[in-house]
């Protein structure tokens, strides 16, 4: 191509490029936002409207569907179970994940890189493959159909993220700060609690919230491993074909909203995690 044609073509190409770019952004946003919008409209409409056709494009702000949801037999127990399991998952994954993240960032040991990769690889292992042996083992140990048993599985799912997020947090704190604390009269432990912990507390909170969301959204293990003590996701899945449309919408809404809000709140730390994990 000669320089002349390049000069003539450049503005056109650039403008076309911009249109493609904008179109792609709009499409991606629509992909995410349109279903959410329909979820919102249908949740905030009366059951009659939800089940009629055509659908409205604006919410009625009728709390009938949500009211029906709250009154549906077993749903509040399921909601309580979801919160309990997610809460336990959050606590356990931080208690196990944060020390691992600290060790990864502060100590050199043989196989450190392999260990980091292995942590990530646990996420590549499909849960359905594990479900049957897990269910058998849980029945044998009496962990089946318990909140604790399920949160153990969810902790396993959340730990890789807890480790990677806390690893990147600890790595962001100069070792010199800890060493300064040691020379000022701290032991390793007091230096950690007085210097490192206050500095990473916001990040730890974010990592905990992320673990909560992972558990909150998880449906497969929850559906396989619980019968009586179903979490909200498992409960809705179980009643998918029998429950009326407005219940599904309200349930979906209740599941999606906390996850969205939480993820939005901790997005900064998730980026940090990928920044490190992609290296």
């Amino acid at each position: 191509m000669t320089p002349v044609t390049t000069d003539v073509a450049a503005p056109d190409t650039r403008r076309a490029g911009r249109y493609v770019y904008i179109a792609a952004v709009v499409l991606l946003c629509a992909w995410v936002l349109v279903p959410l919008y329909f979820l919102l409209i249908n949740t905030l409409s009366s059951p009659e409207t939800v089940n009629s056709f055509p659908k409205p494009f604006l919410p009625e702000f009728d709390l009938g569907s949500l009211g029906f949801f709250a009154g549906f037999a077993g749903i509040l127990t399921a909601l309580k179970n979801s919160i309990l399991v997610a809460g336990l998952t959050m606590i356990m994954s931080i208690l196990i994940g944060a020390p691992a993240g600290y060790a990864l960032s502060r100590f050199d040991f043989r196989g450190k890189e392999a260990f980091r990769l292995l942590i990530l690889l646990t996420r590549a292992f499909p849960l359905p493959l594990l479900a049957l042996p897990l269910a058998v083992m849980f029945i044998q140990t009496g962990l089946d159909d318990t909140v604790f048993g399920l949160s153990l599985v969810h902790t396993t799912l959340a730990i890789p993220f807890a480790v990677l997020i806390t690893f990147s947090l600890f790595s962001g704190i100069p070792l010199e700060l800890e060493e300064a604390a040691w020379t000022l009269g701290c032991t390793r432990l007091t230096a950690f609690t007085k210097v490192v912990l206050p500095l990473i507390l916001p990040g730890i909170t974010a990592s905990a919230i992320f673990a909560f969301v992972i558990s909150w959204n998880e449906v497969f293990a929850a559906a396989v491993l619980t019968i009586e003590n179903r979490t909200l996701t498992a409960f809705l899945l179980q009643n998918l074909d029998t429950s009326p449309l407005h219940l599904k919408f309200a349930g979906g809404f209740i599941l999606v909203v906390p996850a969205l809000i939480f993820i939005f709140a901790v997005r900064k730390y998730l980026f940090a995690m990928w920044g490190i994990a992609n290296r």
């Binding site: 100069p174 010199e176 060493e179 300064a180 020379t183 210097v195 500095l199």
Partner: peptide, 11 residues
């Protein structure tokens, strides 16, 4: 000890 990068506790 006084460190090269000061190591003043930021919190």
């Amino acid at each position: 000890m006084v460190f090269q990068n000061y190591a003043v506790f930021p919190h």
